[in-house]
Design a protein around this nucleic acid. Sequence first.
DNA 1: GTTATTGCAAACCATTTGCAAGTGT
DNA 2: ACACTTGCAAATGGTTTGCAATAAC
Lengths: 164, 164
Amino acid sequence: MNELSTVNVAVSPVEKFEEFLRTKGMRLTQERQLIVNEVFSDHEHFDIDQLVSVLEQRKERRVSRSSVYRTISLLEEAGLLRKVARNQSRDLYEHDYGYPQHDHLICKSCGSLTEFTNDTVSKLLEDVCAEHDFRMDGHRMEVYGLCQKCSRPPQRRHPMLDRI
Amino acid sequence: MNELSTVNVAVSPVEKFEEFLRTKGMRLTQERQLIVNEVFSDHEHFDIDQLVSVLEQRKERRVSRSSVYRTISLLEEAGLLRKVARNQSRDLYEHDYGYPQHDHLICKSCGSLTEFTNDTVSKLLEDVCAEHDFRMDGHRMEVYGLCQKCSRPPQRRHPMLDRI
DNA sequence: GTTATTGCAAACCATTTGCAAGTGT
DNA sequence: ACACTTGCAAATGGTTTGCAATAAC
């Protein structure tokens, strides 16, 4: 049983964000709500451009690109989001709240991101940091290579024909 | 004894680069030589701006910023360099040839990079990749936190005075 | 001589910012 | 009323690119 696979979320992302804003004398506006809801509607990684596109489709209320940038920064500060990597010179974000620590397998061919968790990694890092007198408070690991699909040699349409 | 700490370099970086260029019908120009020599004169991490500055000081021959960018891309392609991380929105590079695999401790306060090697990490990753049918061919790990210097509380000038 | 390469200036493009108009309390 | 936010358009800043002049072979 792996306690990392489930995380108790006492407060919802929006609530946590609202609290963060309050402490800074800022307001939870409609724009900010729309953005947070959209961002936390699923666990996918995204970049700003994708987020802006999705928001454009929702007719409820238009949100400008600037506000998206501004709000994403706030969400990072609040510890709700973090940058994972870059994709074609765009920053990629993922949830940093209500979601277990994990790392990524990145396919060089199709660009897909696969998450994995490994408890041993963190323990290992603790040792390394102790050795270097380093006070760790997070890490990021990216493993490059070919995913299952892309490392399979291209399939013939009808392999059974070989047998005829 | 750790065999990773020494790597036999059969051919020098310039030679390897020249070979790479030849296979692509390209030329090892004076500009390209100057850049490769500068880049491999030490093992420090660097960004393009730093490299350009250093090259400007060497009076031998002026190399334009464009050429630096173009050559660095080629060195990446040739497997001599790789991007390590970003620092204030600039790409940071390091040697990817004639230098053992390693990872980085990154100080959030002063931005310093410390290299470390850990054999167990790679073994661990092999297991993870096996599980996911992933064909690994490299990884990058960044550990964030505070380095020795920055995690030490600010020192008083004359600690001995306490004893008076 | 032919083809690759350079330096320059302009283009690119994701992100940031100044500011006047608008919104929340 | 007041302070915070928004959308817009312009600015920023690292990186890329078109092109005429230049160097390599």
